[in-house]
């Protein structure tokens, strides 16, 4: 049977890879001194994607639920760790807060997708579960790291105000509310922006992929709409989660702000 898309040979892929020479040429001509980094980046792109392809091929072929679940768990842990890596502050428990928030929010959205909205039979079908959770994780990750970063900055910068409020008789919640709101707002801005321009400025990645695979545009759009809302809710829940967990860690039951726990991380 004819496939609805054109299958590529390794020669064709290699031809495209040669385009890295364009970047190399520019770097040499303008003496940007980034040829080495370009070369490494090019190799990493090829190697990492091939590796992922091989893993996915194996996972798709074996199709056992526990293997798929293991892969999803590994993706979640990597996302939780990456979220904190981009943040410029540290406090004890930040890694766990990030991991719990990203896990709970993305898996809830993922479960909603494969059990209720789509629904997929069997639920762990890798063709759906892996890309859906992957997209939710990727966006929740940036919400969490932006939110955490902003929270750290706000609590550092507004420490005098937070403490002045506590001294005037504010509860920890009343004192921290401003910085917490700012952090959640910051975490949610990117997804709101991408919802605003979805389909206008650029075609979202998943939809593009489906179009290339020969799916009817309206079908592709339906999937994209679903994923946009899953991502938006996942990001909101993840950001709120990590901000609240941080709040619980940094403000104790005696309504004291444990500012000394927050450290700058370059």
């Amino acid at each position: 049977m004819d496939k609805p898309y054109i299958e590529l040979s390794y020669w064709q892929v290699g031809l495209a890879a040669l385009l890295i020479l364009v970047n190399g040429g520019i770097s040499l001509m303008l003496r940007l001194d980034i040829e080495r980094r370009l070369l490494v980046a090019g190799f990493r792109t090829v190697a990492q994607l091939l590796l992922v392809g091989l893993v996915l091929q194996w996972v798709f072929r074996v199709g056992r639920w526990y293997i798929i679940l293991g892969l999803l768990a590994a993706m979640t842990v990597v996302a939780g760790v990456s979220a904190v890596r981009r943040v410029h502050v540290r406090y004890p428990g930040i890694w766990l807060s990030s991991l719990i928030s990203i896990w709970a929010s993305s898996w809830l959205m993922g479960a909603l997708a494969v059990f209720v909205i789509v629904p997929v039979e069997p639920w762990y079908s890798p063709q759906y579960a892996i890309p859906l959770l992957g997209m939710i994780l990727g966006n929740t990750l940036s919400g969490i790291s932006l939110g955490l970063d902003r929270l750290g900055g706000e609590l550092g910068g507004s420490r005098p105000q937070v403490e002045a409020l506590l001294a005037l008789g504010a509860t920890r919640w009343e004192a921290a509310r401003g910085p917490l709101q700012q952090a959640v707002r910051t975490g949610m801005i990117p997804i709101i922006n991408s919802m605003m321009v979805a389909g206008v400025v650029s075609l979202p990645g998943m939809m593009t992929g489906q179009l290339l695979a020969g799916v009817d545009p309206i079908e592709a759009v339906k999937y994209q709409i679903i994923i946009m809302f899953l991502i938006a809710s996942g990001t909101a829940l993840g950001t709120v989660g990590v901000v609240l967990l941080s709040y619980k860690r940094l403000f104790n039951d005696d309504h004291q702000f444990l500012y000394q726990l927050v450290r700058e991380h370059p």
Binding site: L166, A167, L168, G169, A170, T171, D253, D254, H255, Q256
Partner: peptide, 8 residues
Amino acid sequence: GDALPAYR
């Protein structure tokens, strides 16, 4: 605990 805000 929650007596703190009223104390402050």
